[in-house]
Computed example of a mutant assay.
Amino acid sequence: MEIKGKVAIVTGGASGLGEATVRRYVDNGAKVAIFDMNDERGNALVAELGDAVIYQNVNVANEEAVEAAVAATVAAFGDIHICNNYAGIGNAIKTVGKDGAFPLDKFKQIIDVNLIGTFNVLRLVALKMSTQEPVTDCGSRGVIINTASIAAYEGQIGQAAYSASKGGVVGMTLPIARDLSQFGIRVNTIVPGLIHTPLFDSAPPAAYEALSKSPLFPKRLGTADEIAHLSQFIVENDYTNAECIRMDAGIRMQPK
């Protein structure tokens, strides 16, 4: 599917991996709706990128909020061809720690945003995509790209909730791709490793250097635009479907 002339929704699109993907899509001629809760960054991107983007304040786990934002996207741009689900949160809490058992509400919060939020957005976007006319010779109507993490496979100490949420994203990739194949909608998941996002800007230099040595090669953290580039590849390559693609320079995470 060619990106030029298409319409994308990018959750978590106001910063980090989402922002890099928004910029890459706009550079390639797409219109983009940013779903995020960072009004300052979202509005700043609209001011910078102009009519190619709109911003919607969206809690991805809220059904009514997502329905309204999808409707606003359709009203602004028409059909929806691409959906990137980057919105997510994390915590670091041991199953049993010095303060007792992992608080159940904190576990549920991670699942609610990362897993249920991802499914909430993609199901509502897929409903709209399923009604559209195909845009390729092979009958493609849309592409959904979710985001997991290598923690889905190699979760570290304290990552029970985060790993469970991202493992759920990996696990639902194939069945949802099967569900949506009848409509010509592809579903894939990007599985990032250590990617330099604003979160790392406050890391102590020694810790950052140690993390940079963890991948096999190259010995550095990945960039947000490298993830965005992979997203572009997935959109443009119609034969990429039902895949969970690790992008981690060969790293395998240790327990801590």
Rank of each mutant, 00 (worst) to 15 (best):
I150F: 03
N59Y: 07
N85Q: 08
A65M: 12
S163G: 12
L104C: 06
L211T: 06
I144M: 10
D105H: 07
Q254Y: 00
R186I: 09
T136Q: 07
S15N: 12
G78H: 08
F35G: 00
V169L: 12
T95I: 09
T131N: 05
L124I: 09
L122T: 01
D112I: 04
G88H: 03
V53G: 13
I251A: 08
F35V: 00
G97A: 07
A161V: 00
A161D: 13
V46Y: 02
G50N: 09
N84Q: 11
T21L: 09
D112A: 12
F233E: 03
A30V: 12
S130Y: 08
V121I: 06
A126D: 07
A164Q: 07
A33L: 05
V53C: 07
T136V: 12
A151R: 00
V66C: 04
G29S: 09
L199D: 10
E19G: 05
A126N: 06
A177F: 06
A228L: 00
A228I: 03
D99G: 06
V125L: 02
L216W: 09
N241T: 04
G90I: 06
D51S: 14
T95A: 13
T173F: 05
Q254A: 10
I111Y: 02
G168P: 06
I116H: 11
I54T: 14
E133P: 08
L49Y: 06
